[in-house]
């Protein structure tokens, strides 16, 4: 039996971990993992805040359901693009993919 704050804190820390991952990791797969952690943090926040004594807010839950679906689509697309990038550059290091830069 712990309070709302614990969950909010957990979601905040998850969110920071996601950002941290995006900021420091060079591997594309790792960056996608970071994106997923960010998504999970937001979901946890939604669910925790919608669980009140006044009742469960159904709208928040349906938003999370939709968001899970869309997030999965985004990640799948990112992964397939990663694969193509890997075939092209033979590496997953974002710092070596510089051909886009002029």
């Amino acid at each position: 039996m712990i309070g709302l704050n614990w969950y909010l804190a957990a979601s905040a820390i998850l969110y920071s971990i996601g950002l941290y991952c995006l900021a420091t990791k060079r591997n594309l797969i790792k960056m996608i993992i970071g994106v997923e952690i960010l998504l999970n943090a937001a979901h946890l926040n939604f669910i925790a805040l919608s669980t009140t004594t006044a009742g469960l807010d159904p709208l928040a839950r349906t938003y999370v359901i939709v968001s899970i679906g869309v997030g999965a689509g985004v990640i799948a697309l990112a992964l397939s693009l990663t694969l193509l990038v890997y075939r092209h550059y033979r590496t997953l290091d974002v710092r070596k993919m510089r051909r886009l830069k002029w």
Partner: peptide, 15 residues
Amino acid sequence: LVQILTTSYIGIQFA
């Protein structure tokens, strides 16, 4: 973030 989240929602009764 922890600071903000844990202080902004004090009014909400966690069920």
